[in-house]
Amino acid sequence: MLLLAGTSSTSQLCPPPGVSEGRCIELKADGTNEVSEVQLSPGQPTTFSFDSDVREDGLTLENREHFKVAPGKRLITLVPSESVRGEKPSILMVCFADGAAPACATFRLIVHPAIGERQVEIFRHQRSVDSVQTELKTTREEIARLREEIARLRAERDRPDGLTGLFVSGMVGKAGIPSQEITDLVTMRKSNTLGLVGVTTLRAPGRAAIGLDLQNPEGAKPWTPQGAVLVGPKGEVLEATFWPAEPIPSGEQRRIWIEVMAPDSQTEGPFILKLWEADGQRTFVIGNVIFPALTVEPGL
C-alpha cells in the first residue's frame, strides 16, 4: 500500500505553464496513456527530452526515411525532410531501459508546413513492474468478487419477493428465522463513542444479521457508519454490509442492521463486531456476539 501511495499518478511532474519553454508530457504509470500528438515542421529540429534512459534498440519510427534522426540516451532529435509534406502522420515509439512502467511511450507526429514544436519534455510516473503486477492481482481479485456478487444478485432477482421468496431461497424453514436478544451478553469497549441500547442477532442458512440500537450522545457530532466487520475466535474476518448508511444525529437513537454472508460453520462465534464511521476517527466495538443455532432443516 505504501509503495502504491508513494507512486501515485496524481502527483504532478510537469512544471506549471509558463515556467519552462516548450511542451511537457506526463506518462501515467497505470498504462492508460493516450498517444500524444507532436507537431513538426520540415527542416526544423524537434527535440524529445526524457527523464529516463532510452533503450538503444528502443526507438521505432514510421517512414524513417523522411526524417533525420539524432538518437541519444535521453535526447532524441527529429528533423523532417521536405518530402514529408502531404504524408500521413508518422508514429514514434520510444521504450525505456530501466524495465519500470510505463515501459514505452508513443507519439503521433503531425507535420505542419511552417510551425513545429522545438522541444518536448517527457516525464514518467515511474513504477516497478512488481508494483504494477501487485495492483493488477488486486484488481483481478476485486473483479472476481464483484462478479460473484452480481451473480448472487441476479439469482435473487429471479426469485419471488416477500415471504414466498424467503422460503424459496431456503432462508426460512418451518421454524422461521431464529433470533436472539444478546444485549446483556455482549461486552463493551470503554473507547466506544456510541451508547448501546439493544442487540439482536438473527441467523439463516448462509447468512447472519445483527440489529443494533445505538445512541449518539447529546452534543456529539453526527455519527455516520462507513464499514463493519466481524472478527471470529480464531482471528478470521468476515466482511459485513450495513444499512442504513445515514448519520445518527446528536442525542438521537437509530437502529443499524449488519449482515454477513458465510457458510454456517463460519458463523458459530463468538465474534467481535467492529463498526466505524465515515472519517475513521470514531469506532464502536462490542465482543461476545453470538448467533442463534440452526436446529431445523431449512426450506420446504
Rank of each mutant, 00 (worst) to 15 (best):
E181S: 10
A175E: 13
E181P: 02
Q180M: 11
R152F: 13
G198L: 04
L163S: 14
P160S: 08
R159F: 09
R189K: 12
R152G: 12
G176M: 06
A155W: 11
L202R: 04
V197G: 15
V168G: 05
I150E: 13
I150V: 15
R157D: 15
L163P: 15
P178T: 13
R147Y: 06
A151E: 10
V172N: 02
V186A: 11
R189G: 04
I177C: 05
M171T: 02
E156H: 14
I177R: 01
R189E: 14
L185A: 15
G170N: 06
I150A: 15
S169V: 06
V197D: 15
L166H: 06
S169P: 03
R157P: 11
G176Q: 06
F167V: 14
I150K: 10
T183H: 00
A155K: 15
V168N: 09
R157Y: 10
R152L: 10
L194M: 05
L196H: 07
Q180A: 05
K174L: 13
V199G: 00
G195Y: 03
M188Y: 06
T183M: 01
G173A: 07
L202P: 00
R159P: 04
S179G: 04
G195E: 05
T201F: 03
M188D: 04
K190S: 06
T183K: 01
K190M: 01
I182K: 00
G173N: 07
Q180G: 00
L196E: 02
V197L: 11
I182A: 04
V172P: 01
